[in-house]
Write a protein that binds this DNA or RNA. Structure first.
Lengths: 185, 185
DNA sequence: CCTCTCATGTAAGACGTTACATGATTCA
DNA sequence: TGAATCATGTAACGTCTTACATGAGAGG
C-alpha cells in the first residue's frame, strides 16, 4: 500500500496528472521504489473512488495530446496520509539484484565469464553514479528530505562500487593462486 | 525465475530438503533475496516435474518429524544452471524500504515523530550490523563469493547507517533554524 | 508442560511487470 | 518523415507474502 501513499504525498505539493506522478516518483525516489503505469492508473482510480483525491478533466480544445486528468488531494486524503506518515514503517529493507544472485554462484561457472560480468556491472554502476551526481548538481533548492534521499542513493552507489572493485581483485587473485597450485602439481 | 536457479545452485553443494534450502538461502544471501515456503515448495515440485532435480523420500521408522524429502540436482539441472549462470543478469538493483518511502515525506508530518522514527531505524540497523558482524566472525572457510556477499551486506549496512545518522543531525539542525526564524518574526 | 526447531505443504490475495492499444505535438 | 515526448489506460501474467493446517522430538 506504499504507492498509494506516495501518490498522496506528491499531491501535497501540487495537483498532478498520472504521467507526471510517475515521472516525479522516478526522479525523487527512483532508487527506493520503482513504479509503472500498471500500478499508477488503477491506484488513481481507487483513490478517487475512496474520495482521497479528486479529479478535474481538462477540456483542451485544439490543444496538444489526449485529455489530461488533473488529480488533487482532498481533506480526507490529507487525513489518511497523516495517519500513514505517523505509523511505524512495517518492514525493513530488501535489496534485490539478479546480478548478486548470480554472483554467489560464480564459483560453479566459468571464471573468465564471471570476471567479464563483474566488469559489465562495474561499468553500469559507474555510469549510474555519474548520472546521479550530475542530476544532483543540476537540482537546486531541493526540499531537505528529498535532497537527503538523493545523497543516500549516491553514497550507497559509491559503497557498492568500492566493494565490487575489491571483489573483482580478490576473485582474480584467487584464480591466479588456484592455477599456480595446478602448475606445481 | 531467480529462485529456481538459486535452488539449483545450492544443490551443487549437496542434496538438501526444502527446509534446509530456505535456511541456506537466508544465511547466504538474505540481504540479496528473501524467500518463504510459499515459493520454495511449489518450485521444488516444478523443478522435479521438469527433471532438473530428483527426489528420494526418507523412510525414517520411528524417527523425528514428518517424512523428509531429499532433493538432488540432475545432469539436466546442472546444464540448465550452467546456461543461466553464463547469461547476463536481466535487471539492475532495486532497494526497497517502506521507511525510506516515508522518509521522503517527513516534511509533511510531525517533526518530533519523524526524529523518533529515525532513531528507531538507527537502533534497528545498528542491531542488524552487530549481528551480521558476529555471524561473519563465527563462519570460517567460507567460499570466496559467499564471503564477499556477506562483506557487502556489512559494508552497505555501514554506509546506510552513516548516512542515516548524518541525516538525523541535518534534520534536527534544520528544525532549530526554522524555529529561530519564527522567533525573530 | 511449554516453547523452539525441524519439517511439509496449500490457498488466497497482494503486489509488480510487460505488452499492448491509442493518439497528438514537437523537433530534427 | 520519423523519432521523441507527452498522455491514458487495460489485460495477462509472474512473483511474493501471509495465513493456515499438521505434527514430532528436544530441551528447559
Amino acid at each position: 500500500m506504499a504507492i498509494r501513499h506516495a501518490i498522496l504525498g506528491l499531491l501535497h505539493y501540487r495537483p498532478m496528472h498520472g504521467y507526471k506522478i510517475k515521472a516525479q516518483i522516478e526522479q525523487n525516489f527512483g532508487h527506493v521504489w520503482s513504479i509503472n503505469y500498471g500500478q499508477i492508473y488503477p491506484n488513481l482510480k481507487s483513490l478517487l473512488d475512496e474520495g482521497l483525491i479528486s479529479m478535474t478533466e481538462e477540456n483542451r480544445v485544439g490543444m496538444r495530446g489526449p485529455s489530461r486528468k488533473l488529480y488533487s488531494i482532498t481533506d480526507k486524503g490529507r487525513k489518511a496520509f497523516s495517519r500513514w506518515i505517523m505509523e511505524p514503517p512495517d518492514k525493513n529493507m530488501t535489496l534485490r539484484d539478479p546480478f548478486l544472485m548470480k554472483f554467489v554462484f560464480f564459483g560453479f561457472g566459468d571464471r573468465r565469464r564471471a570476471v567479464e560480468m563483474i566488469d559489465d556491472q562495474i561499468r553500469l554502476y559507474t555510469e549510474q553514479l555519474t548520472s546521479r551526481k550530475e542530476k544532483f548538481k543540476k537540482l537546486k533548492n531541493l526540499e531537505i528530505h528529498v535532497r537527503l534521499i538523493s545523497e543516500m542513493g549516491i553514497e550507497l552507489n559509491e559503497a557498492f562500487l568500492a566493494w565490487l572493485k575489491r571483489a573483482r581483485e580478490e576473485i582474480v587473485r584467487d584464480a591466479v593462486n588456484a592455477s599456480n597450485e595446478v602448475d606445481h602439481e
